[in-house]
Design a protein around this nucleic acid. Structure first.
Lengths: 228, 228
DNA sequence: GAGTTTTAGATTATCAGACAATCTAACTTC
DNA sequence: GAAGTTAGATTGTCTGATAATCTAAAACTC
């Protein structure tokens, strides 16, 4: 029995051929491609169909385009790709308890790196301290949440591990909703935890910081559990 | 001094708004979106500009379209993302040493969860064992790499933490090229490590598994460092 | 009445032609 | 030489249109 092959969309064919062109011409980031018009003519399609393919490749950073200049080979940006990952069902429909577990693993996991880098660069502790200081004068829940998120991001950032910064940002997006029910009475405890953590790190007490951070993130567990 | 803000491309704005629409309408895979014409009118843009955005989202599997039917919500397809990102080894900005560190943090971080779940479900160990067994008969580097990736994915998967499974997949995409230089003499050692890790986990020796896994992932560090 | 074929309408896929916006190099002015 | 202007190149976005595909309803056949 012969099966019919699904007709491939022109744009998908063109995207593949653009990738092949980049490889065969040995192009790297910043290198120019032919103009849209030239490519459309070479591939025998309309310029707009060509653009549907190039815009798809641009979405991932594989290509870049500038008005007046042209198309160039891009650099795939991990932050961008990780951001798209937010549409993965594992995150989109994430169980809040899994978000907590994931945050614990990532944030506690970077502490050793943070501590090492703090020993060499006092500015890292200062940056985190600045956020803690600003947190003490937060009056609205929204502001407190922003500062809490900023603190946790800065913490991961202090590790220098960019992949985890990107992923941590993503987790915060989904986790944000669960902070809405934090009581004002808990703000102080949260801020005190932040202070404890960064001081422990500055003093090279990584295990102590890890316990405090775990406890801090875990503090959401019952409140969130009660909501679902 | 006031800085000029770069003008955002219409298609990028529309892509973001489509994602927001999906979330706010609580749409899931298979659910219909308004027609291209309706969306274009709602967003106040031409239908072709709307399509540049939708084709970008389709490129990742986030949307699907069928002639005569319309647009539906899809599922982000990691296989597709893998294929697109992996077509050229040098086109991303991920630092290999950071990828190693990130993998260690994620994979070692999940071990406690894996161990707990293994105690309740022997199938988890069996699944990993099956991958190790298949690895012993790998003849081509490509096959060995696939099985190595499969093993590490299954390990994270055994934790039940879906957000980390998705992120682990993404890390593997970027890491894949660095396995290309693994010598055949190292395959055996790698397989032995896999065996050691899963047996330690089965026996609730989490710290021992963690050390072995760290060492296993770190084994890439010098080889990769020497290349760059 | 049941099954098959055809048709109409809906919707995406792709096109041609056009003007707007942005960039860069060359030219002009001071 | 520095600053400003212009021309040309190229992408960004649009209007209007036809082609291709899908589905449900209508028509046809037995």
């Amino acid at each position: 029995m012969l099966e019919t092959l699904p007709r491939r969309k022109i744009r998908d064919v063109i995207a593949e051929r653009l990738k092949s062109y980049i490889i065969s011409e040995e192009l790297g980031p910043g290198d120019r491609l032919p103009t849209e018009t030239e490519l459309a003519v070479s591939f025998g399609v309309s310029r707009l169909s060509l653009r549907e393919a190039t815009k798809s490749l641009e979405f991932l950073g594989i290509l870049e385009s500038r008005t007046g200049v042209g198309l160039t080979v891009g650099l795939i940006d991990m932050q961008r790709v990780t951001n798209h990952l937010g549409f993965h069902p594992a995150l989109h429909n994430a169980d809040p308890q899994q978000l907590i577990d994931s945050r614990v693993i990532v944030e506690v996991g970077v502490l050793l790196h943070v501590s090492r880098r703090m020993a060499e660069d006092a500015a890292l502790h200062a940056a985190l301290q600045s956020i803690v200081d600003r947190s003490t004068s937060a009056r609205k829940l929204e502001d407190w949440i922003d500062l809490d998120i900023e603190f946790h991001r800065a913490l991961i950032e202090a590790s220098g591990l960019l992949p985890l910064v990107a992923f941590g940002d993503l987790l915060q997006v989904f986790f944000r909703q669960f902070r809405d029910s934090v009581k004002k009475a808990e703000w102080k405890a949260g801020i005190a935890s932040h202070q404890q953590i960064i001081d422990d790190l500055r003093d090279q007490k990584v295990e102590r910081a890890a316990l405090e951070l775990t406890s801090h993130i875990e503090s959401h567990r019952q409140r969130i559990g009660a909501k679902s």
